[in-house]
Design a protein around this nucleic acid. Sequence first.
DNA 1: GTCCGGCAAC
DNA 2: GTTGCGGGAC
Length: 262
Amino acid sequence: MGLRLPFGKTEVSAEEIDSLVDRDLAVEHAKTGNVNQPEERIQEFIETVPELLSWLEANGRVYLWRETTDPWKVYLAEILLQRTRGNAVEKIYDDVLRQFPDPETLVEATEGEIEDVVRSLGFVNHRTRTLTEVGEIFTEDFGGEVPGSLDKLKRPWRVGDYSARATQLFAREQPMALVDSNFARVIGRVLGYEMPSQPHKSDDVYALMEALTPDDPDLARSFNLAILDLGALVCTSEDPDCPSCPLNSACSYYESEQGRPD
DNA sequence: GTCCGGCAAC
DNA sequence: GTTGCGGGAC
């Protein structure tokens, strides 16, 4: 066992993807977002996933936390990455791992020591309290280990669905859908899905993403990383680079001319 | 000025 | 549902 790192599986046929997603369920949930011609839209999207994964292989961002399945290293990274760019986390990640190689070292640290190492990321008070609780809870209740269920991963303050699910997906080989601002923007544009203001709170958005996420650990990894990186590098909120997007042939936003160059 | 691999409080 | 948290990069 063991995931293919860093990007999971990036060579795949459309037929294989089709066999690992729930197309009919995705179509049903697409209707809730007022997607036009949902059958055709979802089918086109599924057919384009191989190109999306090839794009990841060539363009994906390489970070240390993508090169490990150590749950502690992944979980720490997810806390640092909340509302924070990967490039910012990259600069301090080595220091964080060196100072806090396991939960017990967080218990032994002073508040000031934790504040100092995360200061450049912002949310300093939030992250310091979270990391303090992570140390206490994991040491006292879970024997110093990262627990294996979503509910337990979410016990520390300000660890929510995204961080917990990302840990299960990236460290525990559990195929799982993620919903964050990147996913909402990319899927919203490609499908023409009318996103609610808080996509991660929508059961329907989660159900749609679960239906579209391949039911295979390596492909779930690559699929999620691909959408994440596409949202960060190409399908940006301001001035998306649609002409170089691997999904543009299947994209509602591109079709509508909004994404066309001047 | 706007945005970032969220989350909890209100 | 909406708002605050935050330093850094553009």
